[in-house]
Design a protein around this nucleic acid. Structure first.
Length: 246
DNA sequence: GCATTAACCACAG
DNA sequence: CTGTGGTTAATGC
């Protein structure tokens, strides 16, 4: 406990110093990355010198599928969707919430991106030079370890998310998605969908028609309150039941 | 066979 | 962009 306090106050001093000494423009951003807490002043400085901050408007492409992946992106604020396009269909594989790294698997796993990242809301992102990032991964094992943990957690989340979804039928998948929005994305029982019905379909593996119908059914049965893109969960128990039953 | 489910299509608002 | 209704194909009693 005490050790923790000393540790965090040290970190604070380090960040304060780095701000003054190195005039770090993005230490505010680095503060938000748990992984970057493992970097010392010199390393933070290196990161800072090889990092630019970019703003994206909704629907702007942050990186594109099939393009060469050339840098690591840290999502500082906003929501981003990862989209994979197959022959005829579009799938939204994940919604990313800040703070998080975008596309570590696709940056390190292959030369080219296996999916696109598109801004849903206004987005502020840090674009970090990949060579600098690699150097830090090699030289600082605590940092590397924290990144590995991050990537593993993401994979587990993805596996449980997608394979649980696959076994359900449409109503269950929609219910599951709504619960997911509520529990993990917005942390609230009422929220505004940041995308169209069609995209909701792309996210849950349904057609836009099914989404439209299912949402209305839920609304009619008093499970949710639906106003355009606004959803308020009324009967969470029921929703969980539908999700479980598939 | 008959029922259920969901995708695809077409046609409004 | 959404909501609806009809049609069709697949799958399971």
């Amino acid at each position: 406990m005490l050790k923790n306090m000393i540790y965090s106050s040290q970190k604070f001093v380090i960040l304060l110093l780095s701000h003054i000494l190195f005039k770090m423009k993005c230490n505010k951003c680095l503060l938000k990355s748990d992984e970057a807490q493992n970097l010392d002043i010199e390393e933070l400085g290196r990161m800072d010198r090889n990092c630019v901050q970019i703003n994206f408007a909704p629907n702007e492409v942050i990186f594109k599928q099939d393009a060469l992946s050339s840098n690591v992106i840290f999502l500082q604020s906003g929501l981003v969707k990862n989209i994979i396009k197959t022959n005829y269909k579009k799938h939204i594989i994940k919604i990313n919430k800040a703070p998080s790294y975008l596309g570590l698997p696709t940056t390190f796993g292959d030369k080219v991106n296996h999916y696109s990242a598109v801004a849903i809301t206004d987005v502020v992102a840090c674009n970090i030079d990949i060579e600098t990032f690699k150097e830090l991964l090699r030289s600082n094992s605590d940092f590397s370890y924290s990144i590995i943990v991050r990537v593993c957690k993401n994979e587990l989340e993805y596996l449980s998310g997608s394979f649980v979804q696959m076994q359900k039928q449409s109503g269950g998948r929609v219910a599951e998605a709504i619960l997911n929005f509520s529990n993990n994305l917005f942390n609230s029982d009422s929220f505004t969908l940041p995308f169209t019905r069609s995209e909701f379909g792309d996210l849950t593996g349904n057609s836009r028609e099914i989404i439209s119908r299912t949402l209305h059914e839920f609304s009619k049965e008093g499970i949710i309150e639906l106003k355009g893109r606004n959803i308020a969960i009324i009967d969470k128990k029921r929703l969980e039941q539908i999700s479980r039953a598939g």
